[in-house]
Design a protein around this nucleic acid. Structure first.
Lengths: 332, 332
DNA sequence: GGGGCGTTTGGAATCGATTCCAAAAGCTTG
DNA sequence: CAAGCTTTTGGAATCGATTCCAAACGCCCC
């Protein structure tokens, strides 16, 4: 039994295709009796309108796509919950696809916006150059989340990474730290901003970075351990380490502890994101809370505006407030 | 400037729409000169074939959808990498959508298969009743992953959860444990199988479960802590705890340690999944490794077969081999 | 130069749902 | 009961890409 079409339903119900379509779309211009006959036929044939035919005619899909490098990051999955909930409330389905850091895969997925497979795109952490993001965003419905390109043409939602890094570094200095090191991620736009904030806080206090290390590949637990080993092997042991993520900070803490040193007495460690990792770590991590869920909601709001109001074109960058969360990894 | 169509390209290139389409689809029956003219026009107009029109005509989308309750689980994201890579190799785009445990959301997403928005579906952890899974799978292209319904009509890929739980419980008993407790998740099919395996290993050894606790809501770090507190408050302190996931085990270890007891000397703890949490925990967790990536690949393979070979209909359940990984949380 | 072959091309029909227009049906009121 | 509404209906046109069929073209060889 092949798929039933609107024609089949019309025949079974004894009405025209127009009437069937009107029932499907809740048009008021249908008599109760027709509505009933059509509903019966739909049930009998187990009919569902074909998405591609409908999308073609309507010129929209009511679907959006969120692109992320991977799904493991707690901030990403939380932000996506925000996108998804907001989307659902507006009748959109939101889908996610990981690029796995492959430009080809990314291109293929961005093409889904270009070819109308989806109506809008949320970019989480593209490997795409800023120029490409800009070019895409000027023509189509795109919003950036967390990682925002330096561009006047595109729009993005994030926290003020620079300020947040400055805040947490100031806190470290406030607890008495003088030889501060950082473990960062220059591959990410946010990582570069956090580095800036770190350096600004230092020079404010008349200090210089003891060491700055940057991950080459992944920015994960193992990278945190590896880089911390380097840190400890060097001459001047830092008395505080600012890490670009909680997961990396957890690796850092682990390596320090394994080396027989105490956190925070010998070395204080700060994380970033306030993910569950921050609480799983012993001692629990001082970190920066990102309002990820809210960021997702706001991002979808902007995307919806872009999709439905062709005139409006929001630009630039919107900051949501972050929060310094102080826990045992830095108490003095 | 509205979207360019195949007609526009044809006009600009000075050929017919048929020729444009043939170029688009790499038909050999096109002269080099036409091919070139069309390629030029496509570039000039920045043309992309509209997905809905193409899908309508071709009656397939080359897209699949993976449904999961959430994205945070490392096993899920790893399994999805496997699905995604295998799909890409066959020219499919694979998308993910979290249901957030909402049956409505789940229904909406499953409808994407019913209405032809995607060609196939990978079900990770549906809240859907077994009967519904079965009904869906008999008509459409569906494959289950990790959580597999008790049904002869549907097909699913997973490890042998019962056997794996038995293996790790035997190991606990082998290290001398006699008062074994478990923290499980009866809300998941896999959780129920793991409970079975746990009990089988116990009765094999002539033992009885000291305590068995089950999470009410989420099965996460906090649930692990909460349930372990209950465990410790009871009279007969267990000398080993089998946890249904690494994350829960991490919560368990944390609570035991905070109570001033030692892991594994006072209480041994075992996890499940061999996620990164198992390595982040101190001491590192003994656990069961699931070949998640491979499971994803295999699942897509089965789905592809189902989508492209209408005659074949694989049924039942396929087990991939698990592995007992022994670490410090249970050494004796 | 023309017959016959294979290559290339144009154009119409098609996929399935929506929507617009005109016509039919139903209702009210003088 | 007819004129004048409104409500409801049928059916054709439409969205954009693909594909099939027949026609046009090019080429070779006799």
């Amino acid at each position: 039994m092949a798929r039933a079409t609107v024609q089949d339903v019309a025949k079974t119900a004894g009405v025209s295709v127009g009437t069937v379509s009107r029932v499907l779309n809740g048009s008021p211009a249908v008599s109760a009796s027709s509505r009933e006959k059509v509903a019966g036929a739909i049930r009998e044939l187990n009919y569902r309108p074909l998405a591609s035919a409908r999308d073609l005619r309507r010129d929209r899909t009511m679907r959006i796509l969120a692109l992320a490098k991977n799904l493991e990051s707690p901030v990403i999955s939380e932000a996506f919950r925000g996108v998804g909930d907001a989307a659902a409330r507006s009748g959109y389905v939101s889908l996610i696809a990981p690029t796995a850091g492959s430009p080809d895969r990314e291109q293929q997925l961005v093409d889904m916006l270009r070819n109308g497979s989806v109506d809008g795109l949320v970019l989480f952490s593209p490997t795409m150059p800023d120029d490409d993001v800009e070019a895409l965003a000027t023509q189509l419905s795109v919003v950036q989340l967390c990682e925002v390109a330096e561009s006047e043409a595109a729009f993005g939602v994030s926290i003020d990474d620079r300020q947040a890094a400055r805040d947490i570094t100031r806190h470290l200095i406030g607890t008495g730290a003088r030889r501060l090191a950082m473990i960062g991620n220059r591959a990410a736009r946010s990582g570069r901003l956090r580095e800036q904030g770190f350096r600004e806080a230092l020079s404010e206090a008349g200090l210089e970075a003891a060491q700055s290390l940057f991950a080459a590949g992944d920015f994960d637990f193992h990278a945190g351990r590896r880089l911390t080993r380097e840190l400890l092997a060097a001459d001047n042991l830092p008395d505080a380490v600012f890490c670009g993520s909680d997961t990396v900070a957890a690796g850092c803490v682990r390596e320090i502890t394994d080396a027989g040193l105490r956190v925070p007495e010998d070395v204080a460690v700060a994380g970033f994101d306030d993910s569950i990792q921050a609480e799983m770590c012993v001692p629990e991590l001082t970190t920066i809370r990102q309002p990820a869920y809210e960021m997702g909601r706001v991002a979808f709001g902007a995307l919806l505006e872009r999709m439905t109001e062709p005139g409006v074109h929001r630009r630039g960058r919107m900051f949501l407030p972050h929060e310094l969360v102080i826990r045992d990894s830095t108490k003095n």
